[in-house]
Design a binder for these strands. Structure first.
Lengths: 134, 134
DNA sequence: TGGCTAGTTGACGTTTACGTCAACGTAATA
DNA sequence: TATTACGTTGACGTAAACGTCAACTAGCCA
């Protein structure tokens, strides 16, 4: 198989583990770890892992979660939430609850960021004032 | 000393470790740990710790940092940044740099939150559509 | 065919941020 | 004065999220 053929398929681009590693600046060890934690499920070509566009998006979500301080367990819930399993009424309701919980988390973080930003602004002003007096 | 006298001083209200523990819903163990990490420095009355308004604010900052996924090391930097040490020109410049770095971190987080919020909105819409069709 | 490159699977190590005792001190209270 | 509540200092334990080997495999290229 050539690189070109390996690089694309019906569903879109596919990636090797080092592709993802470089694109997202994360180690291959971490990527395999996420798989072992049930967050990624790449196909195999022999024993080698091949990541689909879906895996790519999932990884992006994991890393975004990390930047926000979410645990892998929380990100995994989010991922499972996005992956439609059984689509009965009860399941839908449950997902809507989780959506709401995620929103509340994000809202709290948003509020914390605003507070921090304000404090940074104040502190910078104080420092600039102090610098003028030198 | 009565509770009343213990509860206030020239600088404002003072707190015992369990006061803080209850107000912020954090264990006393954690509070002592933050001190051992050089983030809090309460006064002592005998061997007992007494926390000032400044300590209160610092603890609030630590916990806000935690909600945003900041490491204690990062929050400690922020705390030290707010505590004016030597106030020479070079020091001021350095603090301004740190302020800027903190802002950039927060900006990234803000952007991540927006993305997540959008995705949640989309997903909720999809689910509500699917529910209508049942 | 030998070596290079990329990938794989264990297995153990490490850092962060506390939790969880145990053993003790001290002060108010019954 | 004995108990209860609150606090203290070690010391060891633990969960999460990987890092770091070591030993192996499989494809490609001179």
């Amino acid at each position: 198989m050539t690189k070109e053929i390996l690089g694309h398929e019906a569903g879109g681009t596919i990636y090797t583990i080092s592709d993802l590693s470089q694109r997202f600046d994360v180690t291959t060890r971490a990527i395999r770890f996420y798989e072992s934690e049930g967050m990624l499920s790449p196909q195999r070509q022999g024993q080698k892992r091949l990541y689909s566009q879906r895996d790519y998006i999932t990884l992006k979500l994991i890393l975004r979660g990390k930047r926000l301080g979410w645990s892998l367990a929380q990100s995994r819930e989010l991922i499972q939430m996005y992956n439609p399993a059984k689509n009965n009424q009860a399941q839908y309701e449950k997902v809507l609850e989780m959506v709401q919980q995620s929103r509340e988390r994000l809202q709290q973080q948003l509020s914390d960021i605003e507070t921090m930003m304000d404090e940074l602004d104040n502190h910078e002003s104080q420092i600039r004032d102090a610098m003028k007096k030198i």
